[in-house]
Design a protein around this nucleic acid. Structure first.
Lengths: 195, 195
DNA sequence: TGTACATCAGTGAACGCGCGTTCACTGATGTAC
DNA sequence: TGTACATCAGTGAACGCGCGTTCACTGATGTAC
């Protein structure tokens, strides 16, 4: 094990990444400090060498999850509307629904974030704006701000539909809902400018 | 204080109702047994005279919340499509967004329910089916089953959009999103049969 | 009508346990000479 | 090159506290006679 500033930075990044996965899997209240640190191969006390509190780790992990979702998925899609359709089809795939750790932070945590501290809600808001500004640029390349609300509405619709598909015990109905989600997203993408 | 079977039944109903409010406010993991019982004017130990476990109370409260949302709001709306529009406008009002205890259990708890035990998920699923069957009957009076998926998609979209409006720290943006939610819901209501 | 008793809704202390946080310590590393 | 020392990432026991659950008990009620 090296003993450098880069090493410490890498460890911090590892804590943030594994915490993001754990938080999505077990929820914020459902993830204890000992578990969060064990996931990164460390012991409970180490958290406070990197963060002032569990809440600060949660806030950082939420910000990182949003950034990662944009960087790894949204920004990689084809340009314009075609890319949005790609994103929507990926989002409503059974694989993405069933892989909660690697899945969408919005769907996994949105109602808990709404109950969280201001810093966490702010980090989430900042992350959501990155996503929807990307959406908006695809919807209205010549005037992205005009499509911001449409993008925001799309994000809410996508997260809620995925949550519902995860909550239902009827697997067949849950699968059909994913297909309905794709249809609905496409309807909203193509809705009149003023709708 | 009377001492009859009806009294015990009333107390149980009171526990279920106050627990529903508390769970929506603080989340499932965020609501302790002592708090849940104190809300009903009782002490921690009493829970086990009414339920076998906290989880059974949670399951019962979720079922009750879904039933109450149907009975008190959805079933009271005007018949047909006009009623759906009424429901949507009520749902996306700032008042309903800001009154979390009295608000929608889907928006408050959906991602936590997706992580819950099977009985809780089953109770939620049963409740959601009551809601969407009502929606479907309004969408397609002559063939309700054909509109089930559309109704389910509408429910997911409504819950997710409301959660997002609650999570954002930018109040103005959150308010605009509610208006966008109304527009989007109406677009989905009026979408072609096969979309 | 008055008294003794059975019922039972509700109490609240106690259980073991995990929570978030603190802190004295370990031991591997890089550096000084 | 070899040795002494300073640095510091990480450990893990301990803190007070709240968790879900159990259970011996209280005391108000309805009932029996």
């Amino acid at each position: 094990m090296r003993y450098t500033k880069e090493h410490k930075q890498q460890t911090k990044q590892r804590i943030i990444a594994t915490a993001g996965r754990r938080l999505k899997r077990d929820g914020i209240d459902g993830s204890g400090v000992a578990t969060l640190m064990k996931d990164a191969g460390l012991t409970n006390g180490t958290l406070y060498a990197y963060f002032t509190s569990k809440d600060e780790l949660v806030t950082t992990a939420v910000a990182d999850q949003m950034r990662a979702q944009h960087e790894n998925i949204v920004a990689h899609a084809a340009p314009g509307r075609a890319g949005l359709e790609q994103i929507v089809r990926w989002y409503f795939s059974p694989e993405q629904r069933d892989s909660i750790d690697d899945g969408c932070p919005n769907a996994a945590l949105l109602d808990e974030i709404a109950r969280s501290t201001d810093p966490t809600r702010q980090a989430y808001t900042d992350g959501a704006l990155i996503l929807i500004d990307d959406f908006a640029a695809r919807l209205a390349p010549h005037d992205p701000p005009s499509a911001r609300l449409k993008a925001l509405g799309l994000l809410g619709m996508m997260a809620g539909t995925l949550q519902l598909s995860r909550a239902l015990t009827d697997r067949q109905l849950a699968d059909q809902l994913l297909e309905q989600g794709i249809r609905n997203a496409l309807v909203l993408l193509d809705a009149e400018r003023h709708n």
